[in-house]
Design a protein around this nucleic acid. Structure first.
Length: 272
DNA sequence: AACCAGGTCTCGA
DNA sequence: TCGAGACCTGGT
């Protein structure tokens, strides 16, 4: 099958998901426990996988009307410029358990390290799918040999990670109801768990629970809000401002801004 | 060799 | 509700 109007490099390297790798021009990933390979063909992407077309389109959010979304968030010159510059960058609809567990690991670490932590966790607990492919583990798989979490280089995130697996396993997290809930109830509920604060809750809400108004603010986004919009202060305050400014699809704007900052960082690093 | 990283937690005001 | 400090570890 083909996916129309998508830029794989932008979508899969913008820091929203941590399990995609580009090898010899093709993007390799694991979605819903199955391997998937994508290749950019002009503005479209060719998909190779045993997943159903519906599952693929679901993951890449082809039920979203991007025309409407971009019209809605295009509130200022800066963001409309980014929408044009990074055309084809799409938000993904990730599995809520994998997304929340991964973002618990993502706190106070850089992306390369996050990728390594998630990879080690998958190799240690996940199901082997191929020569070099492991699924992200289920809570059960983690709890079955949780002592081995210490070998994954998670640092102080280790205990939070295992405890969260236990909570999900024990049915203390109802992702389906979090999807249906209001955005504010959703993040409030998520933040009750150890290791999930405002920012991670926003990431989970945005990347896996269909709350497109969620606007995660990390240090980079915080700097942009201050320098370009003159907004600073507590998370609660800056987050409320951003959701008000960009509207009901603010999360999409956030990802374009985040990616733009990431691109700037990459060029700085390449110069060294 | 420092510095910093898709933050969270705890605690005092 | 908000700001300040501590915090595992490994990239860069």
């Amino acid at each position: 099958m083909d996916l129309e109007g998508i830029n794989l490099d932008h979508t899969l390297s913008c820091g929203q998901a941590f399990r995609w790798r580009k090898l010899e021009g093709r993007w390799h990933g694991i979605v819903a426990g199955k391997e998937i390979v994508l290749e950019q063909m002009g503005d479209d992407a060719e998909v190779h996988t045993s997943l159903s077309d519906r599952a693929v389109r679901d993951y890449f959010r082809y039920d979203d009307d991007n025309g409407e979304i971009f019209a809605e968030i295009g509130r200022d010159r800066y963001i409309t410029m980014l929408l044009r510059r990074y055309r084809g960058l799409r938000l993904l609809r990730q599995d809520p358990w994998e997304c929340s567990a991964s973002y618990i690991l993502a706190t106070y670490a850089n992306v390369p390290r996050i990728i390594q932590m998630v990879e080690r966790v998958s190799r240690t607990f996940g199901t082997k799918l191929s020569e070099d492919g492991f699924s992200f583990p289920s809570p059960e798989q983690i709890l079955k040999k949780s002592a081995q979490a210490g070998t994954c280089g998670l640092g102080y995130r280790c205990e939070r990670f295992v405890e969260f697996a236990r909570s999900v396993h024990d049915g203390k997290v109802d992702f389906d109801s979090l999807k249906c809930a209001d955005y504010s109830d959703c993040v409030k509920e998520l933040a009750r768990f150890d290791g999930i604060g405002s920012k991670v809750a926003d990431c989970v809400a945005l990347f896996s629970l269909d709350h497109l108004e969620a606007f995660p603010i990390d240090v980079r986004i915080g700097r942009v809000l201050e320098q370009r919009y003159g907004i600073k202060g507590s998370y609660r305050k800056t987050n409320a401002w951003a959701r008000q400014h960009f509207g009901c699809y603010a999360g999409y704007a956030q990802e374009y801004i985040y990616f733009d900052q990431d691109i700037k960082n990459r060029s700085i690093n390449n110069r060294r």
